[in-house]
Nucleic acid binder design. Structure first.
Lengths: 227, 227
DNA sequence: ACCTGAACACCGTTCAAGT
DNA sequence: ACCTGAACACCGTTCAAGT
C-alpha cells in the first residue's frame, strides 16, 4: 500500500491509531473500493469458503480487479485478518448493564460463543495478531467488569476471567476453521468406556455441554467465595 | 502415492486400518525413507518453524529429495498432519490407574495440556481430520473412564468430559500455531477495568489460570453431586 | 499521482518420461 | 517396478511501466 505511514504490525495499538487516521484522511478512489466494502466481501468469502479461501487474488477477483489494486487499500493479508476479527467482534452485544453481575457473566460468555459460531472460519484469525481493536477492547473490559460486578474478589475474578475466555475459545475449537464436522470424539472401536456410553456421548449437544461447563465453573467459584 | 488401496480420507477408522496394513506390507525402498523418518522430520520442522512451514516441498528438501519422491510415501499433506497428531498424542502418559479418580482427572487434563504446549504448532492439526488414531482413542477413552471412576454419574460425567476437553484446547489456543506471543488480553488503553487491574492481569501465569479453572469446574461438579 | 500487468519466489499435486 | 523432472494451477507481494 503506497503512502502508508509506518505504524507497526497490524493489530498493535500503534497500528490501530494509524488506521483511524488513515480512515479520516482518505479521499475517494476511482475504483470505488473502500476498506469497508473490502472487509465485508472478505467476511462473506471466509464465512462461505473458509479462511484459506481468503486470498488476496481471490478477493480481488470478487471486485473484478487484480491483487495489485487491492494492495492499494490493504497493506497485507494479515491486515485483512485483523480487520475481519474486529468486524466479527463488533457483532457481540454486551448484556444490559442493569442485570445482576452473575447473569451478565453468563450472558457475555454465551454471546461471545454465539458470535464465534456464527463465523467459525474467522476463529483462527483471533490469534493472528494482537487484539487491540476498539471492539475487542470493549468486550475484554466488559468481561472482567462483569465478574467484579458479580462480587468475586479481584484475585479470583482475574483468573476466572482468563479461564472463561479460554473455555469459550475451546468450546468452538473443533467447529472452527478448516474443522472436520466431527473430529472428536473418535469412533469408539477399541475404546470400551466410550463404547459403553456411546449414544449419550454422540448425542451430546455442544450448546448444553458449554452451558453445563460454565455453570459448574461458576458454582465452584460461588462455593470458594462462601456462597 | 502409487498403489495405495482406497481407504477413505486420512484420519478415518477405515484409513487407519488401511494404514496399519500398508505398514505391514511395506518393503525397503532404495531412497531409505520410511514413514517414521518422514513424520519425525515433519514434527521437527513444525515444532521449529510452524505448521505453515510444513510444505511437502520443504520437507522433501530436508531429505535432499523432491516432493514427487515424498509422495511415494505419503498420499497428501493432510495425511502428514494426521500422522503428526497421532505422534504427538503418543507423548501423553496416562495417570497411574491406582490413583483416585479425581486425581486422575486432574492429572490427565494437565498432561494433555503439557503435551500440546510442548508442540503448540501442531494444535491446529487436531481438527484437520477425525481423531481415530490408536493414541487418540486410548486417551479419549481414559478421559471418560477417569471421570466415571471419580464417582460422577454418567449424566454428569459425559458433559463434564466434553467440557474439559474444550477447556484444555482453549487453554492452549492463544499459544498455538501461528499465534502471536501475546494477542490477549489487549493493551488496556480505553479499558478502565482492565487498566485498574492491569498488573494482576498481565502477570497471571497461564499454568495457574488453567489449574484454577479446572479446580473450580471440579468443585462445581462436587457440589452438584452433594460432596 | 494513481493504477496495474507482469514478474518473483513460492505452494500441493500429478504424470509422462526415464531407469 | 520404481522413481522423479517438469508441469499445472495456484499463492503473497512488489515494482516498473503505463495513464
Amino acid at each position: 500500500m503506497v503512502g502508508t505511514t509506518e505504524s507497526g504490525p497490524p493489530g498493535t495499538s500503534a497500528w490501530w491509531a494509524a488506521h483511524a487516521e488513515r480512515l479520516e484522511r482518505r479521499r475517494p478512489r476511482v475504483d470505488g473500493l473502500t476498506i469497508e466494502r473490502i472487509v465485508d466481501e472478505a467476511l462473506a468469502l471466509v464465512d462461505g469458503e473458509g479462511l484459506d479461501a481468503l486470498t488476496v487474488r481471490g478477493l480481488a477477483a470478487r471486485f473484478d480487479t487484480s491483487s495489485a489494486t487491492l494492495y492499494r487499500h490493504v497493506a497485507s493479508r494479515d491486515e485483512l485478518l485483523v480487520l475481519l476479527v474486529e468486524q466479527v467482534l463488533g457483532e457481540i452485544r454486551l448484556p444490559d448493564p442493569s442485570l445482576a453481575g452473575r447473569t451478565k457473566v453468563l450472558e457475555l460468555s454465551t454471546e461471545f460463543r454465539r458470535v464465534l459460531l456464527a463465523h467459525p472460519n474467522v476463529v483462527d484469525a483471533l490469534r493472528a495478531a494482537p487484539l487491540n481493536g476498539p471492539n475487542a477492547v470493549r468486550c475484554a473490559d466488559a468481561g472482567l467488569a462483569n465478574l467484579l460486578d458479580a462480587g468475586y474478589p479481584p484475585d479470583l475474578a482475574i483468573p476466572a476471567y482468563l479461564a472463561m475466555i479460554d473455555y469459550v475459545l475451546g468450546s468452538v475449537f473443533f467447529r472452527s476453521a478448516g474443522g472436520d464436522p466431527q473430529p472428536f470424539p473418535p469412533a469408539p472401536e477399541g475404546a470400551p468406556t466410550l463404547e459403553a456410553n456411546w449414544s449419550e456421548v454422540a448425542e451430546s449437544e455442544s450448546e448444553k455441554v458449554f452451558a453445563f461447563g460454565l455453570e459448574m465453573f461458576l458454582t465452584g467459584l460461588d462455593r470458594l467465595t462462601g456462597r
